[in-house]
Simulated assay, not measured.
Amino acid sequence: MKDTVKYEFHHFGIPLQDGKEEGVFSEKAGMYTVDNPGKFRVQWHRFTDNSPLHPLLKTVPHVAFKVDNLEDAIRGEEIILGPYEPIDDYFVAVINDCGVPIELIQTTLSDDELWGRARTGQGSLYRK
Rank of each mutant, 00 (worst) to 15 (best):
D88S: 10
G116R: 09
V67D: 10
I95M: 05
E27T: 10
D18E: 07
D111K: 00
E71Q: 09
N50Y: 08
P86K: 06
K39Y: 06
V5K: 13
C98F: 13
D89N: 14
L70Y: 02
T107P: 12
W44C: 01
D111L: 04
R119S: 13
L109F: 10
A64Q: 10
S26G: 08
E78Q: 15
E78L: 07
D72K: 15
I80G: 09
D68S: 08
E77G: 07
L70K: 12
R117T: 05
E85R: 00
E21Q: 14
Q17T: 09
D88C: 03
E21A: 02
K28H: 12
I80N: 11
M31N: 04
Q122P: 03
P101W: 05
N50L: 09
N69A: 03
G23M: 13
G121M: 13
G121Q: 11
I14W: 05
D97T: 01
P61G: 02
D68T: 07
P37Y: 06
I79Y: 07
G23F: 11
K20M: 14
H45G: 02
I95T: 01
A64I: 09
P86A: 02
W115K: 12
F91K: 14
K20L: 15
M31A: 04
L114D: 10
K39V: 03
Y7G: 07
D68W: 10
L56E: 04
V34Y: 03
E8W: 02
Q122I: 15
V42H: 10
I87T: 06
L70S: 02
F9A: 05
E77M: 15
Q43P: 00
P83C: 04
D49I: 06
E22P: 00
E85I: 01
G82C: 05
I14C: 04
K2C: 01
V94I: 14
D18P: 03
Q43T: 08
Y32W: 15
P55A: 14
L114W: 13
R117N: 14
F25Y: 15
P15K: 12
R117F: 08
E77T: 05
V24S: 06
I102F: 06
E71G: 01
T107A: 03
T108A: 12
H11M: 06
K128P: 13
Q122R: 15
A64F: 05
E77S: 13
L70F: 03
T108Y: 09
D3F: 01
N50T: 11
K6M: 07
Q106F: 03
K58D: 06
G82P: 09
E21H: 05
S26R: 15
L53A: 04
D89Y: 08
D35F: 08
F47A: 09
K128I: 14
T4I: 12
W44D: 06
